[in-house]
Amino acid sequence: MKKRKIELVVLSDVHLGTYGCHAKELLQYLNSIKPKILVLNGDIIDIWQFRKSYFPKSHLKVIRKIIDFTSKGTKVYYLTGNHDEMLRKFSGTNFGNFKLDDKLVLDLDGSQAWIFHGDVFDASVQHSKWIAKLGGWGYDYLILLNRFINWCLHKLGKEPYSFSKKIKGSVKKAVKFISDFETTATELAIEKGYDYVICGHIHEPKITEIENKHGKTMYLNSGDWIENLTALEYNKKRWKLYRYADNKPEIDEELFEMENMLSQTDLTQMLFSQTRLVSRRN
């Protein structure tokens, strides 16, 4: 299968280790591309909701694929979010083509891109973490219930329905929070002179240019791999919002399985060795 060459890919809010994560679809996407730079913009592994009883092989394969990228020349930046905030004590760590940090500034054809997760703008995360964590558990089970409902709707020939999108669209506080989030991010980016500001966190994929009396910037949000299944792609000086539903990659199933055949034990050993290396350097 011919892979698409892309200069930069930004992913966020994958939430590996939760019921809502679409790891198989994400793995298909990752197997269809060959990026020069891959930015993982927070909440990739959901440490908040981590449970020993649930971490499927498909989720481990996503981690393995990311490691494969680094071994084949792709620069991978892992920027921490609130659900993987435990990794922030290792911020600044890098080995080979992999770097762990909290934020990132990239030069893209002479333009400056400011990239960070965005939970710093969320008061519930900063001041009431137990409420935010409780909400995370509730959201995960809501997504699980929603999948069952949509399976039934599919069998009946009906269109799928999103509970969380309905709630976000109907609750005024949720709508205001998203609007305030975007406004705050863009105002700061304009003030700092960045051409692009790239976030995740709110699970709302978007590319839009914002202008105020002080200047303008482009706001981008990579969305998530729970409901929207989206990513940001930068190529030939242009941004594109990739949607899995509109661009399902054609996969040779036999080749797909061969490329990803790695036992859980082998992968765990690989991750353990990488973790020990990080610990030594810190």
Rank of each mutant, 00 (worst) to 15 (best):
2 K>S: 13
3 K>A: 00
3 K>S: 00
8 L>V: 07
9 V>G: 03
10 V>Y: 04
10 V>D: 05
14 V>A: 04
15 H>M: 00
16 L>K: 05
23 A>W: 03
24 K>F: 03
29 Y>H: 06
29 Y>S: 03
33 I>C: 03
33 I>S: 03
35 P>V: 02
41 N>Q: 14
43 D>W: 07
46 D>P: 01
47 I>W: 07
50 F>M: 01
53 S>G: 13
55 F>N: 05
60 L>Q: 11
64 R>T: 01
64 R>L: 01
70 T>P: 01
70 T>G: 02
77 Y>H: 14
78 Y>H: 14
79 L>R: 04
81 G>A: 13
81 G>D: 11
84 D>H: 10
85 E>T: 04
85 E>Q: 10
88 R>D: 15
90 F>P: 00
91 S>A: 14
92 G>K: 07
93 T>K: 02
98 F>S: 12
99 K>A: 10
100 L>A: 10
100 L>F: 11
102 D>Q: 10
105 V>W: 01
106 L>G: 02
109 D>R: 11
109 D>I: 00
111 S>F: 01
113 A>G: 02
116 F>K: 09
117 H>T: 13
118 G>P: 07
123 A>E: 14
127 H>N: 15
136 G>W: 08
140 D>L: 08
144 L>K: 15
147 R>H: 12
149 I>E: 14
152 C>Y: 09
153 L>P: 05
155 K>V: 02
156 L>R: 15
157 G>H: 05
160 P>S: 11
161 Y>Q: 11
167 I>T: 03
168 K>L: 05
169 G>W: 08
178 I>R: 08
181 F>Y: 14
183 T>S: 10
187 E>K: 14
188 L>H: 06
196 Y>D: 11
196 Y>H: 12
197 V>E: 04
198 I>L: 08
198 I>C: 09
198 I>K: 08
199 C>Y: 05
200 G>D: 02
202 I>Y: 06
202 I>P: 07
204 E>K: 12
213 K>Q: 12
213 K>W: 06
216 K>D: 02
217 T>F: 05
218 M>E: 08
218 M>R: 13
220 L>W: 05
221 N>L: 07
221 N>Y: 05
224 D>L: 08
224 D>K: 05
230 T>D: 08
235 N>S: 14
237 K>G: 06
241 L>A: 10
242 Y>A: 04
246 D>C: 03
248 K>A: 04
248 K>C: 02
250 E>V: 07
256 F>K: 09
258 M>Q: 15
265 T>M: 13
268 T>N: 13
268 T>R: 15
270 M>G: 01
278 V>A: 15
279 S>H: 13
279 S>Y: 12
279 S>T: 14
281 R>K: 12
281 R>G: 00
282 N>P: 00
